[in-house]
Each structure stands twice: as C-alpha cells, then as structure tokens.
Write a protein that binds this DNA or RNA. Sequence first.
DNA 1: CGTTCAGTTGACCATGATCAAGAGTGGTGG
DNA 2: CCACCACTCTTGATCATGGTCAACTGAACG
Lengths: 257, 257
Amino acid sequence: MPNALIRRLEEYTPLTDADRDELARLCSQSSHTIPPTRDLIREGDAPRSIYVILDGWACHYRSLEDGRRQIVDYAIPGDLCDLNLFILDRMDHSVRAITRLKVAEVGREVFHRVITNFPNITTALWWVELVSKSIHREWIVNVGQRSARERIAHLFCELFLRLESVGLTDGFSCDFPLTQNDIADTTGLTAVHVNRTIQELRRDGLIVLERQRLTIPDMLALQGAGLFNPDYLHIRRLNRHTDTGRDAHKAGNEEGR
Amino acid sequence: MPNALIRRLEEYTPLTDADRDELARLCSQSSHTIPPTRDLIREGDAPRSIYVILDGWACHYRSLEDGRRQIVDYAIPGDLCDLNLFILDRMDHSVRAITRLKVAEVGREVFHRVITNFPNITTALWWVELVSKSIHREWIVNVGQRSARERIAHLFCELFLRLESVGLTDGFSCDFPLTQNDIADTTGLTAVHVNRTIQELRRDGLIVLERQRLTIPDMLALQGAGLFNPDYLHIRRLNRHTDTGRDAHKAGNEEGR
DNA sequence: CGTTCAGTTGACCATGATCAAGAGTGGTGG
DNA sequence: CCACCACTCTTGATCATGGTCAACTGAACG
C-alpha cells in the first residue's frame, strides 16, 4: 500500500520524486509500535520528536483537574503529532493510542534538514497544519451549536471523509474503532446519551455500526442530519457522493477550485 | 504606545532592531479603519491579504445554514487574520469587527518578502499560529465540558490575560466591548442564560462589568470558578496574580520555564 | 423623541445528565 | 479449558441545566 503520509501531503501540493523518496525514507527509518490506550505524548512534556501515524488511530485530548476529559482531535494514518516541537516548549495536550499504532518518529535534526531542503514538503506541512486548525474550528461549532444527533452525525461524516482522503475506506464502509465513551468525550455528551442517539441514527437507516465497522448507506442523508459541509476539510477531490452544501448548484465548474 | 504586533511577537522570540523596524514599517504602510459589525473577511472568499489588528476587537465566526452562529476566536491588537492566505484557497470562516477597528493590510508579495528575509519574524509567526491553535483546543474543552458558569468565567480569564500580554490592561481592569449576545455565541449558550450567569458572577464578587469595562478583583478566584489554567496560552511572563494551576506549588522556580 | 438594541426578568419546557442495574463480549490466568 | 474480570453496550427512572417565549426597562443616537 502507498505511504499514507505521501498520500496525505499530495492532497495539497504536487511532490517531486525526490520529495516522495525523502518522505518514504523518513517513515521507514525509525518506526515503533504502540499498544492501545498508551499515551504517545503527555501534556506538560517537553516535545522531543514528531510522530507520523502510519497505521491505526490516536486521539488528542485535554483533561480537567476533576477528571473530565475532552478529545480535541483524532489522528489517523498520514497525520502528524505534533509540530509544536520546534516552537512551543511544553505540550499543552496529550495524545493517546486508540488502536495498536504504527508510528514513525522523526527527530529534531532530521526534521529540520527536511524543511530546509524540501520546500514542497514544507508547504504541504503548513497546509496540513492549517487544515487541522480549521477542523478545530469546526469542532467548536459542533459542540457549541449542534444537537446531540447533529454532533454525532457530523463526527461520522468527518471521520469517514478523512479516512477516504487517505484511501482507508472501502465503498461506503470504514474501520471505526471508537467506543461510545470516546464519542461521548468527543462530543461533550454522556456515554448513555451517545448510546441512545446512535440507536436513533441506526433506526433511521443513516448508519450501520457493528464490530468496529461503520457503513454509511446514504452519505448525503447523514450529512443533512449533521448539518455537515465538507468545505472546512479542504479536501481537493471530493467523491461525487459528497455534498458541498452551498456550492451544490455550481457542481458543473468544480474543477475550477 | 508601542506597536502591539511587535509586543506580541517579542513575547515569543527575541527580535533584532531590523526585525522591529520591518514590523513597524509593515504596520504603518497600509492601514484602514473599519466600522463595527462590518465583515473584514467572509467565508468563501479567496484570501487576498493578511490583516494585522492594530486597535479594536474582532471576532472569527462560522455560521450554520439555519442562522446559528458560533464565534471561534477573538482577534485583539497584535493578532493576525489570517495565515490561510498562502496556503488555503478559500476562507472557511468569517472575521467581523466588534469595535471600530484599525488594521494594517499586508499583501501577498510584501508578506512573502518578509518571511524570506526575516527568519526571526517567521519563527514568531509560527509561534503565534500554534498558540492560536492551542486556544482553539481550549475552546473545544470549554464548550464541551464546562458548565455555563465555568465557560463564562473561563472566557473572562482568557481575554484578560491576552489583553494583558499586549499591554492593554490597567491594573485589574480592561476594556470589554462584547455584548451578552457575543458571549452567548462564543460559549454555546443563550443570551438569556448568559445574562443570569453573569449576574451570578457579579453577585459572587468575581467580576465587575459595566459600561464596556471589565474588572477582575481576584484573578485567582475567577480562575478557580472557570477551571482556568493559563498554560495553553503559552505566555512567557505571567504576572504574579495568575495561577498556573498544577504548577502552583513550584512557583519558586518559575524562572526556569 | 421615537427607534433600536442591550440588558433584565418571569414562567414554563426539553434536551441531555445522572444513577443504577444488567447483558454481552473478549481477554487472562489458574 | 474454563472461570472470572473488565469493559462496552444497553435500558429504565428521575433530575437539572440551560433553552424558549414573551414582555419590559433603560441607554444611545439620529
């Protein structure tokens, strides 16, 4: 299978063969396997390395003193944790493996060499960073404005499209290793309420979710239920089954973007 | 008064005289005044310029089709809107003036010249960008996990410290031009509930808020009420009256950070 | 001086939280 | 191989935080 990082970056910027070779080397040279629930990065740590997710899912989360926990992002293959490395002196959040994880560790010097010698890669990393910030904004909207049903539908849409953009979907289905508890900590709801809401989505035929596998029979319907508009993901080539919301009427000149 | 942008960037990286001169020139060369409630940047626009806020407040927000609105960040003097310029092709959110605004407009070419010739400035801009992302994460936690009282107390703490870091506070007080409606759209609450909650905070002596002026008589108490920990702001030299939460016991070696 | 907008108050309601208990499932060690 | 444990999912009953609707006050401003 093609390297998820390369696939991800090419979403945004054309890469040369030399760029691709460099990325492939980077990902193969120091890779680790991390068991589920292990923290990859801990809040308060001084950042040491950047990790590239090669396989599996992780979550970025922040904890409150009283035990409440909020997941603030997911990391799937092709994602990076965390560019803080070169700038901030302390991690302000933690990153935890959800599934077994394969990651490549990229040290400070290596990374520095790459960004000085490979401008395309640097541009693409900026891009990834800004998209990730845009996703954060959307999550604020999600927990701030949407109902339970909308929040959960929205989360399913986002994760499906992100997986699709790195080639990890299979038709209308994808792996989905999150527990209802994870979803609760993501959406700011309780696990009990997540349970009831998911049952409702199932009853309405919007999702099939069993044994860690998610199927979305009608993406447009689910997007409608979640008030989901994929623009914020800044994915270049969306599949046809995806609605761009306000731009739906001008689908004819989609290549102009 | 010293330029807020310079003050802001020096928070993070030492600048040379040449750096400062360049920044001063940048801010003086093309400045505009924008009236309250005017959109500075609109969702869907192709980004053209970067704006530096020189004076006044603005908000970043996203709207849903059905009219709901979520403010996802504030921009105060020293802040930038928006580095998307060089990377993403469409704005995924809007920026609106809250007060009368003085901004400097920096075009693509000028900006490009600066980041190629002034590495310290480039580093500082990265820093600002990552801090802003960290603020987004904290806002997700805020709306996802905290009660109404905690959310509003947290917002007051954050804005006060951000203003303080660019020299816009006066003792325990600062300007505070937000309406209760703005606060509602920020915290995911209704204006009615914000009103009642603010009255509660007033009754408890945690804040004084009148005629667009906020006073925080006891910062530590307000931080307690908001479960506020300033680490995520990555401010270098916090004033003494500010609690760092979990690090409070080792205040003695604060200079080691 | 009337209009508009921010702030305030009251009555009632609904979404989602809490508490508690039980069923299904997978992993582990004796 | 089986018993046990831990975890995830599920369901029911009750509760509370915050939402909705409506009306009114006061200040700002042309």
